[in-house]
Design a protein around this nucleic acid. Structure first.
Length: 556
RNA sequence: UGGGGUGUCGCCAAGUGGUAAGGCAACGGGUUUUGAUCCCGUCAUUCGUAGGUUCGAGUCCUACCACCUCAGCCA
């Protein structure tokens, strides 16, 4: 991938570099471990860029491992979507897709090992009782009355659990560590629970499932992960992660490193809240272009490179901050500016009649798709009647609108001729509905011979040979910078005007572009042909993001 | 009130005892057949606070403050 910004500030990359230099590890092995219970969002993108990026940067490998220890919440649908998202971002995992469930047999053996060592026991406490025994943040917990069962009894009980002889919730297997630990995770954590549900990968082989804590580190060890990277909230789990690695005959000693998860303002990323947006039909689905999901950003018109550049830009640290969405928008515009072909689309049409052209005048003009890149060119029909944007015509000249089209003044039609406004018509409501103009001869690629050069340039399309397209204009989904960090329901901050569907008149060449092609509609913004709904018969473009605007012109 | 973590410009973020990088945003100015892009310039005598060590401290020590995080048979 070209012109990506190199990882500039990433403390984990420095650790990897040092470990490689000191010989602590021969090569780096990371993993991206999503639970297949939802769609990936921009926060996951940061983790993906980090884990796969480390492997790329240091010539190591990165595994994709589904952390599928809770079958009732997981599904194949999410597995497929997650694989798509990672691939779209431009990363490929090492070897086959892995599943934590691939290791259930080994994990079971290791549970037996712990029992034999007297380091795990079957506990019959109910969930409510267990909570009471656990103590609180400031008070130590109490030992379970089942804590001192014999190895033989535990072995027999655990076997019965495995055989399905107990109901869900009847008992669990717990590691015997320290009920008085100030770290709650060490207060005899549950490592196996009974779940009599079908698993999307292992079917009905198991009715007991290992917990995250008993699965993650050991899976890392099995796969030879050298640097197990996760977010800050797992820091408290590290002592437990290390305890299992130290007390089990695992084949390797992976190390966990934590970084601060991404927080973006004007955005929510909690799975629960994203689901609520979908369930309440605030958006059309998980891949709605307003969603911060990878699938949503893709449909919005983000490019993989823009997302990756954004991740490089924000860095990887241990502080949890709130990133300004303007940074994401910058990464987006920057990439699109450098790579997107240009074209023209008129959104609020105002007809201009060029009086000195014949009624059937049809001239094919050619324009490059990009002023610097060799992206080829397209033909644009130029006719007597054209459309320009209503906002580009002003009845009165003013200094502020010196670049606009006004009576008696000239304007450059982008990639075409200079015209001069001669008169205009208004409807009963007082809106300008037609402008008459004359074409200045000899101005294709040249300035007027009389030296009266136009001050501005406007985009246009032929009124008779352009194509109508559905335009979906998106704005931010929330009108509050931290919708989920304020009292009350975050839904109250939903921007009800985040989608406007309208019609645009586009150059004929745009009808035939492929879905997901990015364009800059000049002077309007970046648009993308909708991934699912765009077709030559019914062109559909989504507004990815508008162009930056000169603030001094905004105040009216 | 226990444990763990974080505090450098509005936001992200370098800096690891030698006198505060960079990016985003903002604000000036220039170029421009996109009021975009591009270019040039401005933008922390100060690093959560208060003490201390030192010739010298964002960097070391002490105390304090703020914020995040942990009491799922979720991950």
């Amino acid at each position: 991938m070209t012109d990506t910004i190199p990882n500039s500030h990433n403390f984990i990359a420095k650790i990897v570099q040092d470990d490689l230099a000191s010989g602590k590890v021969q090569s780096v092995v990371t993993r991206f471990p999503p639970e297949p219970n939802g769609y990936l969002h921009v926060g996951h993108a940061k983790s993906i860029c980090l884990n796969f990026g480390l492997a790329e940067q240091f010539n190591g490998q990165c595994n994709l491992r589904f952390d599928d220890t809770n079958p009732e919440k997981e599904s194949q649908e999410f597995i497929d979507a997650i694989k798509d998202d990672i691939t779209w971002l431009g990363f490929s995992w090492s070897g086959d897709v892995r599943y934590a469930s691939d290791y259930f047999g080994q994990l079971y053996e290791w549970a037996l090992h712990l029992i034999r060592e007297g380091k795990a026991y079957v506990c019959d406490l109910s969930p409510e009782q267990a909570r009471e025994y656990r103590g609180t943040l400031t008070e130590a917990g109490k030992n379970s009355p089942f804590r001192e069962r014999s190895v033989e009894e535990n072995l027999a009980l655990f076997e019965q659990m495995r055989a399905g002889e107990f109901d869900e919730g009847a008992c669990v297997l717990r590691a015997k560590i320290d009920m008085a630990s100030p770290n709650m995770n060490l207060r005899d954590p549950i490592i196996y629970r009974i779940r009599k549900v079908h698993h999307h990968q292992t079917g009905d082989t198991w009715c007991i499932y290992p917990t995250y804590d008993f699965t993650h580190g050991q899976s890392d060890a099995i796969e030879g992960i050298t640097h197990s990277v996760c977010t800050l909230e797992f820091e408290d789990h590290k002592p437990l992660y290390d305890w299992f690695i130290a007390n089990l005959p695992v084949p390797a000693q992976p190390r966990q490193y934590e970084f601060g998860r991404l927080n973006l303002d004007y955005t929510v990323t909690s799975k629960r809240k994203l689901k609520a947006l979908v369930d309440d039909q605030v958006v059309a689905g998980w891949n709605d272009p307003r969603m911060p999901t990878v699938a949503g950003m893709r449909r919005r018109g983000f490019t993989p490179r823009s997302v990756r550049n954004f991740c490089d830009m924000i860095g990887v640290t241990r502080s949890d901050g709130m990133v300004d969405v303007a940074m994401l928008e910058h990464a987006l515009r920057d990439d699109l500016n450098k790579h997107a072909p240009r074209a023209m689309c008129v959104i609020r049409p105002l007809k201009v009649e060029i009086e000195n052209l014949a009624a059937d005048h049809l001239e094919m003009l050619t324009a490059e798709y990009h002023h610097e890149l060799d992206l080829g060119s397209r033909d644009m029909p130029f006719t007597r009647e054209i459309y320009i944007d209503q906002d580009d015509f002003k009845e009165e000249y003013s200094k502020k609108f010196k670049k606009k089209f006004t009576p008696g003044k000239r304007i450059r039609l982008r990639h075409s001729y200079v015209i001069e406004a001669t008169s205009y018509e208004k409807d009963e409501a007082g809106h300008v509905v037609l402008v008459r103009a004359k074409l200045i001869e000899g101005t294709l690629g040249e300035n007027p011979a009389d030296g009266d050069n136009p001050k501005g340039v406007v985009h246009w399309v032929s009124a008779t040979h352009s194509v109508q397209a559905e335009l979906r204009l998106y704005d931010r989904l929330f009108n509050h910078p931290t919708p989920d960090k304020v009292d009350g329901d975050f839904m109250q901050f939903v921007n009800r005007d985040s989608l406007t569907v309208t019609t645009g008149w586009v150059e004929p060449a745009l009808a035939n572009v492929d879905a997901e092609s990015n364009f800059q509609f000049e002077r309007e913004g970046y648009f993308v042909a909708d991934r699912y709904d765009h077709s030559a018969d019914k062109p559909v473009f989504n507004l990815t993001i508008g162009l930056r605007e000169d603030k001094s012109l905004q105040a009216d």
